[in-house]
Amino acid sequence: MPSETPQAEVGPTGCPHRSGPHSAKGSLEKGSPEDKEAKEPLWIRPDAPSRCTWQLGRPASESPHHHTAPAKSPKILPDILKKIGDTPMVRINKIGKKFGLKCELLAKCEFFNAGGSVKDRISLRMIEDAERDGTLKPGDTIIEPTSGNTGIGLALAAAVRGYRCIIVMPEKMSSEKVDVLRALGAEIVRTPTNARFDSPESHVGVAWRLKNEIPNSHILDQYRNASNPLAHYDTTADEILQQCDGKLDMLVASVGTGGTITGIARKLKEKCPGCRIIGVDPEGSILAEPEELNQTEQTTYEVEGIGYDFIPTVLDRTVVDKWFKSNDEEAFTFARMLIAQEGLLCGGSAGSTVAVAVKAAQELQEGQRCVVILPDSVRNYMTKFLSDRWMLQKGFLKEEDLTEKKPWWWHLRVQELGLSAPLTVLPTITCGHTIEILREKGFDQAPVVDEAGVILGMVTLGNMLSSLLAGKVQPSDQVGKVIYKQFKQIRLTDTLGRLSHILEMDHFALVV
Rank of each mutant, 00 (worst) to 15 (best):
H232L: 00
C103E: 01
D140I: 05
V206A: 08
P138C: 14
L248A: 06
S61W: 10
R164E: 08
R18Y: 14
T260V: 05
K211P: 08
I219A: 04
M89F: 08
S61E: 13
L220N: 00
A8D: 10
A207Y: 00
S175Y: 12
L81Q: 07
V178R: 10
S175P: 06
E37G: 12
A130D: 08
M173F: 02
L230F: 11
G162S: 06
T191K: 02
K25D: 15
L156E: 01
L181F: 02
G153A: 02
A158F: 00
A186C: 01
I166G: 03
H232Q: 01
E187T: 12
S174E: 03
T135M: 12
E128A: 04
S50G: 06
N149V: 01
L268A: 04
D234F: 07
K119G: 02
M126H: 06
L248E: 03
S202Y: 04
E110T: 01
T135Q: 10
P78D: 08
M250Q: 01
I92T: 10
K82W: 10
K25S: 09
D221W: 04
D238Y: 10
C244F: 04
S27I: 11
H232T: 00
L105C: 06
V178C: 09
I214D: 05
T68V: 13
G148Q: 01
A71Y: 11
T68K: 11
G259E: 02
G151V: 01
G162M: 01
E62D: 15
S27Y: 08
F197M: 06
A183Q: 05
E4A: 10
A237L: 03
L136K: 01
V180L: 09
E104Y: 08
P2M: 11
I127H: 03
S227N: 15
R196I: 09
R125D: 05
D198Y: 07
S63I: 07
K211Q: 11
L77Y: 08
I92Q: 01
K72G: 09
G96D: 13
V10H: 02
L184H: 05
S199M: 03
E29C: 11
P46V: 03
I152V: 08
P64A: 09
I219M: 07
C165N: 01
S174H: 00
S254T: 07
P74K: 12
M250L: 15
R161S: 14
A8R: 12
P41V: 12
Q242W: 04
R132G: 05
G57M: 08
